[in-house]
């Protein structure tokens, strides 16, 4: 299968501080890939760069055969690249339905199609349906995360980048969200998952990269990494 994303020797800096010190990785079409690592390892920076929110100082990102830098920021989502940002980033002063509509902002198909997709999201997360006309900012963290993921799905992504979907959520909600993530992958969406919860990420994905200090230190099959001694010591606390 072809690579939907190829990253070569990517370097990203915040002013004088180099956060990503040359990483190389790839994601194949239809894969679920995890990016794990401690705080400050550069995981979120990597995702933000992939989503066009940060400009790399060096290296190359190729998305679906095109250099990412050739696509305008606001066109990325039209090209099928969506990010569920860290901290959810829902529009608090818009209603739940309006948030979902914004997810479909770049779509040019009919209103009926979009409405059908909104209904589909409500089916996946009935909690959102109950709150359809409520301001999104008044919802709980778990509900906001459900909304953030649904909103990203509304754009019909080909590659979905997820930044810490489990952060600060009750185990039962995390379970529901990861169940949905697996469903989404089954539908053919390629996933790049950034997680603090390394165990959960490795159990969910097929392959994984381990980041530390702005570099990729380990990579391989997720199940193998799950039983790798170094990974267990550093990230699984066993």
């Amino acid at each position: 299968m072809s690579n939907i994303l190829e990253v070569k020797d990517l370097k990203v800096s915040y002013g004088a501080i180099q956060a990503i010190k040359g990483i190389t990785f790839h994601i194949k079409q239809g894969e679920m890939v995890a990016l794990i690592g401690a705080n400050g390892a550069g995981k979120t920076t990597t995702l933000k760069t992939l989503a066009g929110m940060l400009k790399p100082v060096g290296g190359e990102i190729v998305y679906m055969g095109k250099p990412l830098s050739s696509i305008k920021n606001y066109d990325l989502v039209r090209e099928g690249l969506a990010l569920v940002p860290e901290g959810r980033g829902i529009f608090g002063r818009l209603t739940v339905t309006e948030n979902l509509e914004m997810g479909a902002y770049s779509r040019t198909d009919s209103k009926a199609n979009i409405q059908a997709d909104i209904d589909r999201m409500f089916e996946i997360f009935p909690r959102l349906k109950e709150r359809a006309f409520q301001l999104a900012g008044t919802m709980s963290g778990g509900e906001q995360q459900m909304l953030a993921i649904s909103r990203a799905l509304m754009s019909k992504p080909k590659l979905l980048l997820l930044d810490e979907p489990s952060m600060g959520l009750a185990p039962i909600i995390v379970q529901k969200i990861f169940e949905t993530i697996r469903e989404v992958a089954k539908d053919g969406v390629t996933l790049l998952l950034v997680e603090q919860n390394a165990k959960l990420a490795l159990q969910t994905c097929q392959r994984a990269y381990v980041m530390d200090g702005g570099k990729i230190t380990l990579e391989g099959d997720a199940k193998e990494l799950l039983h790798d001694e170094a990974v267990q010591k550093a990230y699984l606390g066993e």
Partner: peptide, 24 residues
Amino acid sequence: TKLGKAMRATAVNQEVAGLMGISI
């Protein structure tokens, strides 16, 4: 309208509005 909703979304969070494909 779609434009109005995009305006409100941009007012809440420009970065995330950009992620939705809204041209800020």
